[in-house]
Amino acid sequence: MATAFFSPTFTLRNSTSIPQSRRRSCLVRSSQASVAVETPSSSTTDLLLQVKDLSAVIAESKQPILKGVNLTVRHGEVHAVMGKNGSGKSTFAKVLAGHPDYEVTGGSVLYKGLDLLEMEPEERATAGLFMSFQSPVEIPGVSNIDFLNMAYNARRRKLGLPELGPIEFYGYVAPKLELVNMKIDFLNRNVNEGFSGGEKKRNEILQLAVLGAEFSILDEIDSGLDVDALQDVAKAVNGILTSKNSVLMITHYLRLLEFIKPTYIHVMENGRIVKTGDITIAKVLEKEGYKAIS
């Protein structure tokens, strides 16, 4: 299977448009998902993210996970992706963020007019793409504040701004903690080490609040949160939403979508977006489950 991707046909056919270094499928996929995603009618300058026929495999086993995802996000929009366990939602998020576990085998992703797939993960991040992890990893030995400071300075460098020293940074970060209702001593703890499920999620949102983002992908930011925490998180997310910034939320529950109102809801199944609509989809799912829409 894998060798097929390197077949001479591939090189010949794509030599003008696709760099050889990147492994892409030679198959031209038709975007015939069961429900066509309508292309935006407004001008293309409005586009923030355009995903076309994206397919990806697990790098190690070459097992296909994403099988032709199409998605368009314009500035200021809120999108939600729902779908059964294992349908590929987190994989989609991680592929957009550049996770090395996956290998893109086809399709394209345009972010702010740039070829996202050509960018290193850290370049994607400094270009304003933020993904909150479904299960954030623990990093013993690195304090939360040092980590945030490093990340914030990387962003500042990109913007040509002077970096902040630890003391200045503390002044900047301390008020952000209130936003997500975290105690100040979380700054001195090691990144996610020993955090409860809910604390890890709050910490992701804290990072988002500190770094800011034009496009945030929030992978199940609501799971494991109590009602109060959900409201805190929703408030923080709404706080960063502007007419320019967009959010893509992955969730299983309607309740988050009642706090952060989505423009579109997509349903993912077996590595594809099979349905797109408005909030009613989530309501149907909540009531009747996935069998109602498949």
């Binding site: 963020a97 550049g98 996770h99 090395p100 290193e120 993960p121 850290e122 991040a125 400094t126 993904m131 992890f133 954030p136 990893v137 990093i139 980590f147 490093m150 990340a151 990387a154 962003r155 990109k158 990144v191 990072q207 770094l211």
Partner: peptide
């Protein structure tokens, strides 16, 4: 762990 740093913009 490496990816977590990178995903936050750290090279």
């Amino acid at each position: 762990q490496l990816f977590y740093f990178q995903a936050r913009g750290i090279d």
